[in-house]
Design a protein around this nucleic acid. Structure first.
Lengths: 208, 208
DNA sequence: TAGATTGTTAATCGATTAACAATC
DNA sequence: TAGATTGTTAATCGATTAACAATC
C-alpha cells in the first residue's frame, strides 16, 4: 500500500532522483546530501527532503543519505525492484529502435512482445522477437501479467489500439503517438512527443 | 516580446492545446469550446480559458473558438509559425529513427545536420544527410541560426556534448540521454526518457 | 566537541477552480 | 429573444520555501 495518497507531482520527481542516484553510484559515490542531489537534478534541497519525507526517514543528520540504501528504498516505492513485462505496439522505425534499446531491463522493465498490423511485418523477426498480429493483442494479453504498454503506432490508429490495450488489462501506456488519448479512470498515460518539448522551448527563443 | 512573464506551467500546456486543435482541424472541425478542448486534453475548461487569457481574447461568448484562428495565434505565441533549424547529435538507432521521422516540419522544426563521433559513421549518408564529425560542431554552428538541438548520444558523453552545444549558441536542448544535464541560465533542456515515464506509472500499479 | 545536514513546521507563494456578468 | 460560452474575479486549494530544533 502507498502511504496515504502522495501527490502525483511528488511521485513524478522520484524517478528523476533515482536516476541521478544510480548515476552517482555508478561513479563510485556512496553518500550524498539533499543539497548535492538537488544541484544535479535542478531541484531545491528543501523540496527533495520534503518529497522523501512522504515515504519515511532515509537520511542521517550531519552525513546525508547512503546512496545504495536510498536507491533501494526508491526502487521499492516506485515498485521497480522487480521487472515489469511491457508490450510494444507499432513496429515502425521508432518501434524498432525501442525494441533494440538495452536500457529498460536494469531500470525495472522488459519488452516481452511486439505487435503490428502490417501483414508484411507480422511474423518477421526483430532482434529475437517475432512481430505479432495486433488483432491477437487482447486474446494474448488479457489475464497475463502484462500491465504496461508502449505505443508507437500512427496517430490515426492510436486511440483504437489504446482501447484494445485497456480491454486487455493494461494500466499504464507510454504514448509516443502525437495526440492526447482518452482512457478510463485507473489507467494512466505518459506522453512522449518530441515536438511538444521543442515547442515549449521555442517560446523562450528570441525572435528572428 | 512575451506578455509580462507568463508562468512556465502555462506555456508548457500550449503545445498540447495546439496539437489537439490541429487534430480537430484535420478532422474538419472549425469551431470548439473550452469545454470540448478540455475533454480532449484532460484539462478543465476553466483552466484552458485562464491560460489563453494570458495572451489575449481569442474566443466569442456563445460560440467558443474558431479553430484555424486559435491555431494561428498559438503558433505565433509559441513562435512556431516559422520553421526552426535543429541539429541532431548522436547517430545510434534512435538518432536514425528521429532523422527519418517526418513529423517535425509541419510543427515548426527541421533537422539541418546530424553529428556523431564514430569515424565509421562520419561521412556516411542517412536519408540525404551526411553524418558530420562532432568535433566540428562548434565551428559549424556558432554564429548560425541553429538555436536548438536534439541529443541522442550515450549518457557517458551527454554532458560534454551539451557543453559544446551551449558554446555553439544553442539555447534549447531536447535530451534523450537518461541523465540530468547542467546548463547555464538562458539555456533550456527538455527531457525525454521513456523509463522515467514507465516508473511514474509503475508507482500506481498494484503489487504482485 | 563543532560542523553538517536531516526531517518538519509554519509562512509564503502560486496555481486551480468556481462562479458569474458580459455578450455573442 | 434564449441559450451558450467567454474572460475575469475572488476563493480555494496545493506546492514550495525558509527556518530551525534535533542529532549524527
Amino acid at each position: 500500500m502507498n502511504s496515504v495518497n502522495v501527490p502525483d507531482i511528488i511521485v513524478s520527481r522520484l524517478p528523476v532522483y533515482l536516476r541521478a542516484l544510480q548515476y552517482m553510484a555508478a561513479n563510485g559515490s556512496t553518500t550524498t546530501s539533499s543539497q548535492e542531489l538537488g544541484e544535479k537534478v535542478g531541484i531545491s534541497a528543501a523540496q527533495i527532503r520534503k518529497d522523501l519525507s512522504q515515504f519515511g526517514e532515509f537520511g542521517k543528520q550531519g552525513t546525508g543519505y547512503h546512496i545504495p540504501f536510498l536507491i533501494d528504498r526508491l526502487c521499492q516505492i516506485l515498485k521497480v525492484e522487480r521487472v515489469w513485462d511491457v508490450v510494444l505496439v507499432g513496429m515502425g522505425e521508432l518501434g524498432h529502435a525501442i525494441l533494440r534499446y538495452q536500457g529498460f531491463l536494469n531500470r525495472g522493465f522488459r519488452i516481452v512482445a511486439c505487435y503490428d498490423s502490417d501483414p508484411a511485418k507480422i511474423g518477421t523477426l526483430v532482434s529475437q522477437f517475432k512481430i505479432e498480429d495486433v488483432n491477437n493483442l487482447v486474446t494474448n494479453i488479457k489475464g497475463t501479467n502484462v500491465k504496461m504498454a508502449m505505443l508507437t503506432v500512427p496517430a490515426s490508429v492510436a486511440q483504437q489500439v489504446t482501447d484494445k490495450l485497456v480491454e486487455s488489462g493494461v494500466r499504464g501506456i507510454l504514448n509516443y503517438a502525437p495526440l492526447s488519448l482518452t482512457v478510463p479512470p485507473g489507467v494512466r498515460v505518459q506522453y512522449i512527443d518530441p515536438v511538444i518539448g521543442l515547442q515549449r522551448m521555442a517560446y523562450y527563443l528570441s525572435e528572428k
